[in-house]
Each structure stands twice: as C-alpha cells, then as structure tokens.
Nucleic acid binder design. Structure first.
Lengths: 231, 231
DNA sequence: CAGGAATAAATTTGATCATATTCTGGGCGC
DNA sequence: GCGCCCAGAATATGATCAAATTTATTCCTG
C-alpha cells in the first residue's frame, strides 16, 4: 500500500510525498480508534484544522471518509460527532465479528508463512508487555495491529475492509471499557490462536478467535449496560 | 443550481436545502450502482464537475466517500476508477451476502408491519413489469430498492450499512451481467420471500433470500469468468 | 414587579468557490 | 534511448457566503 514509487534509490522524504488528506485521515483515524475522542463527543472542522495544523479541504475530505466508514456520524444538521453505541449496536457488532473474524482467521491459517507467524507472535509479545506495564494506549494499538494483521493474511481484501470498518465503530467504546476495567481485566485468546495457526488447525483457529472476539465484545456490552444504569 | 430558496417568511422549499456534496454523492452513487460507469472505467474530478455542473470541492468530497465505501478505487497514482472484480472478489461478496442477507431478512420478517409488506410487494410488482418491459435500468433500480427495503426493515443500522456497501461493490458488474443476459435471464425468489414474510416464517424467509442472493451472485461470477476467457 | 417564553441579534461553524501550487505522464529534441 | 519540458489534472489554500446554535432582549402574563 506504499505508493512511494520513486526511481531514486534513496528516499529522503517518503512521508511528505503523501497527500495531506491522507495523513490527516490517518491521524484522525488513530484519534478515533484509540479513544482520544470519546463517544458522543462533537468534532468541528475548524477545531481539527487548528489541532492538526492543516487547511480545511484535507480535513473535510478525511472527515467524509471517516463518516462513510461509520467511524463518525453526522447528526441531524451538519454537525459531526463520535457515535454513541447502544446495546443493540454492540449486538450487531458481536454478530458480525463472530462470523467474520473466524472466517478470516481460517483463511489466514491456511496462508500464513512461518515468517508471518513469527511477526504475529512478536506483536502478541509486545502486547503482553504493554498489559504488564499498564500501558492502555499501547494495548489498544497492539491488539488492533494483531487482529488487523490476521485480516491482511487472509488475502480477502473486501472482507478485510469490512472487518476493519467494524473496528472503527467500536474503537471509542473499547477505550471506555479499558478506562473502567484497566488492562489487567482484558485477557485474550491470542495464545490459543497462535498455537492453532502454527499447527495449521483451521477449526481450532476459528474457535480461538471466536472466543477472543466474544469475550472482548461482551465486555464492551456489559460496560455499556452499566454506564446506562449509572445514568 | 437548486439555490431557489429565499429567506422569506414562508417555508416552501424543504428539500432543496440539501448540501451540494450530498446531492452529488447520490448522483454519483446512482451512476455507479446502476452501471452508467463501467468497471475499469477511469473518472476524473474535472470531468465530473462538468458532467454534474458542480464545483470541485463537493465532487471531491463525494468521491472520497465513494472510495471509502469501495464503490470506487484510487489506483496508485492519483487516478480514480471503477473497480474491476475478479473471481476471488465475487467469492468474497457471495460469502458475505450469503450470511448477511438471510440474517437481515429474518429480522425484517419479525418486524415488518402489514403496511411494510404491502409496500414491498408493490416494489416487486413494479420490478416484474420492468422485466417484462425489458427495462434494464428499471430492473436494477427496483431490485436494489427491494433488497434495500428489507435491510431497512431489519432495524439493524450497522449491518444494513455493511450490506448496502456490498451492493456498491458489485453494482457495476451486475449491470454488465444484465447487458449480456438480458432481463429475462434473471429470475428471482422474491415471491417465495414475500410469502414467507407474510407467514412470519423466519426460516423460509432466510432460505428464500439465500437462494436469491446465490443465484444472482453466481450469475455475476460466471459472467465474469466468461469475460476473462473471452479476453 | 418577577418569571418565562418567544423573538431577534450575534457568533460560531459548515459549505462552496476561485485560484494558486504541485504532481503525473507524455511528447519533443538531442 | 534518455532526459527535459510542457500540458493537464489533482491537491491545497483562504476568502466568502449561508445556516444553526447560542445569547440577549423584550414583551406578556400572573
């Protein structure tokens, strides 16, 4: 996906060659995905222009993109905000991921090279360290990268796109859960998944990822129900 | 061009107050969905500005949105084109719809009012007339509206969004199929589905929609394989 | 006279455009 | 064939216009 096709051997400035709307998009996406923007929070175009130090055209384009992906929503009249999920929405996300993630994990199990598995294991080890460190942001990023890597390995671009889009929808709420529970309370099934992938056991891989997804998403659902009750 | 609304006391123009980027998006979306743009065809911003009689900022925003939804793709350099599907992509779409559409149909069956069912039946009757008339564009639009209505009735906004996004991806190719086969060669299972929904038979509704989806998508896959062979 | 609701000014924010700048790709001369 | 240059297209800016929310005022009622 790197479009830094220079014919010169050394690339001194690979990042500045990216269009501004692309870099803005990535920054904004990270802001949503890792919870720097809270659910329900309103975002303004001009506020983002100042915050990210950019003109308004690139910001507007990035916003349209995020809105189309469901990461942001425009409420009634032209205002943009981070979506607030209710129990029904989380139920939809659970249903979707419970079907999508196992399928992609099966495909990834069939296709992953030893090198891929090593890289995946390395991410998971970093993830464990982030948990022990109590580094919530690191946990969120590495957990995302772990699942994202599996999507990429599945070699199914459309389904991977869909799965990736789902992450953008519950990212902000996941951050809220971590804020309540702490990183300790979020065990995962990554070890089971990695073992199954190494053994090329499709069935076990699908079951491991299903358990991981359900566990994490149910925690989001319950945390959300608790928030409503406390309201 | 629709700026006919004055700020005079009487509010006579409720609809024309839509932003330009929104109307541009809808026009462009229809262009993609109903095959006025062929797969592989390149689109230029300035060309669209002239074609739709709009400034370039709204066009750019609409394009970003369509690209994010997978309806268009930007190839390495900054050119934008209608995606060309291969067999693998169609396989992914079949897999996704085979799971998503039955689920949404089940939910719609549980929730649809008699009024909803009458409206759905009316759409299907119009669809039949379009087929008899040999009106391909009408067929494509009404078939889409039929399925789209079911998504809406399911009361699952996120899953409906995902399903809707899938349509944007195979819309152009569906048009190509119709161009080869003609409207006669595309029977559907809508009658079975409507009967099942009237009887509130979830199981039968899911099965009917599954058959409809598989039948239609397999035709796309085969037509596409034939195109490759002829290439 | 006080409280409140409706209305009108003001400010904030979004939408659009015209234009300047940068980048890509192709043609021409060497 | 290789490199330079030019046309065309995309990107990005800031100004300007319009809409919506907020704030302030006023008038009516109890």
């Amino acid at each position: 996906m790197q479009k830094t096709a220079r014919k010169t051997g050394s690339e001194a400035a690979p990042v500045s060659r990216l269009p501004a709307h692309e870099t803005i998009y990535r920054q904004l996406r990270a802001l949503v995905l890792f919870g720097d923007l809270a659910p329900g929070q309103a975002v303004t175009i001009q506020g983002l222009c100042e915050r990210l130090g950019a003109g308004m055209t690139p910001v507007r384009e990035a916003l349209r993109r995020l809105i189309a992906e469901g990461a942001l929503e425009l409420q009634g009249n032209r205002r943009v905000s981070v979506p607030l999920l209710d129990a029904g929405h989380v139920g939809e996300l659970i249903f979707a991921r419970q079907w999508l993630d196992p399928h992609l994990a099966e495909r990834a199990t069939a296709r992953a090279s030893m090198e891929d598995l090593r890289a995946l294991t390395a991410i998971d080890n970093d993830l464990d360290r982030a948990i022990l460190r109590g580094d919530m942001r690191g946990y969120l990023e590495l957990n995302y990268r772990f699942h994202r890597r599996i999507y990429e390995l599945a070699d199914a671009p459309i389904l991977a796109d869909v799965a990736d889009g789902l992450w953008l929808r519950f990212g902000p709420s996941l951050r809220v859960v971590c804020g309540r529970v702490g990183t300790q309370g979020l065990p995962d099934k990554h070890k089971d998944l990695l073992a199954a992938m190494r053994a090329r056991d499709h069935q076990a891989a699908a079951e491991a990822i299903r358990a991981d997804v359900v566990q994490g998403m149910e925690q989001v659902r319950q945390s959300l129900a608790r928030a409503v009750r406390a309201d």
